[in-house]
Nucleic acid binder design. Structure first.
Length: 288
DNA sequence: CCCCAGTCCTGCGGGC
DNA sequence: TGCCCGCAGGACTGGG
């Protein structure tokens, strides 16, 4: 679930670790299968311990902790991972602890209920190979309208599916794709190569607006309550959702049509059939 | 190039 | 009430 707004919130929440030294790294005693980390724990610890943290960045849906050795620690939360300074939601699913200088019990923690997430310590060359331009498209918050259109407008894919492709655009996931398309008034089944310039303009506007608003609200904590910021506090953007997980409820924009749920690429998509018509309206005679 | 199904994993809720 | 099953969707992989 963590997408760009949630991961950006995690990043901002741990900025205070810049300047701290890493004292130790240990895998938490997790009853279930331990989290995947690379390289293996002993090597990871040896290369991280003693290093100073120089920056905290984000690449797509991952948090990147930069070290003075030029290595980076990359936290990839996937579905249920959290990057925390506060105590984790449960002891049970605490996966990795990075002990920091600056006070007793000062730790950066990776918690992950489902255990699909992972943590990597990578060299600059490895970083480029895994997260460089060949692997990830431009960040969704930094892409221009022209670049967005340029990367997608020849594709025959449906726009919702294309927005989830991290090689085309980095950061958008299933939840925000539906929200962005509703804000833009574009039907999720529209093929990319049928969108006209005005629709790309609306899409780009909606992309920036929705993601920035979601960051302002510190992300979306859904009904399962999993997502938390670095202080283990819930986000509030779920209260602003236009369509996500609102099937059958009335659209907040037109106040008439019920929100529909469809499936695209084995994933739920939510839309308002009235605010997101399948076909563009025919231009009225005498205009255009 | 693109699509699809399967993989990892846990917790939850529906159905019986 | 308890059990089973399907679903949630991040990223990735293999086959068509």
């Amino acid at each position: 679930m963590p997408e760009l707004p949630e991961v950006e919130t995690m990043r901002r929440g741990i900025l205070a670790i810049v300047g701290s030294r890493i004292l130790d790294v240990r895998r938490a005693p997790c009853a279930k299968r331990p989290i995947l980390i690379t390289p293996r724990p002993a090597v990871f610890r040896r290369r991280a311990a003693g290093r100073t943290i120089t920056a905290v960045d984000r690449v797509g849906k991952r948090v990147v902790v930069r070290l003075d050795s030029n290595d980076s620690i990359v936290f990839e939360p996937r579905m249920t991972g959290l990057v925390l300074l506060a105590d984790p939601p449960t002891r049970e699913h605490l996966r990795l602890v990075v002990r920091l200088s600056g006070g007793p019990n000062r730790e950066l923690r990776f918690w992950d209920r489902r255990g699909l997430g992972l943590v990597r310590l990578v060299t600059p060359v490895q970083f480029e190979g895994m997260y460089g331009d060949a692997k990830l498209g431009p960040d969704a918050l930094r892409v221009s309208c022209d670049e967005l259109r340029g990367r997608l407008h020849k594709s025959r894919r449906e726009i919702k599916v294309a927005l989830l492709d991290q090689r085309a655009l980095a950061g958008v996931g299933n939840l925000y794709a539906s929200e962005i398309l509703h804000t833009a008034g574009v039907h999720p089944r529209r093929r990319c190569d049928t969108l006209v310039r005005d629709e790309w303009r609306r899409l780009h506007e909606a992309l920036v607006e929705v993601l920035e608003q979601a960051i302002r609200h510190e992300g979306s904590t859904l009904a399962d309550g999993t997502y938390r910021n670095a202080l283990n506090e819930q986000g509030t953007y779920q209260n602003q959702h236009r369509v996500y997980d609102r099937a059958g409820q009335t659209c907040r924009q037109c106040r008439r049509a019920p929100i529909e749920r469809i499936v695209q690429a084995q994933r739920s998509t939510f839309l308002c059939p009235r605010c997101q018509p399948r076909r563009r309206r025919a231009k009225s005679p005498g205009h255009g």
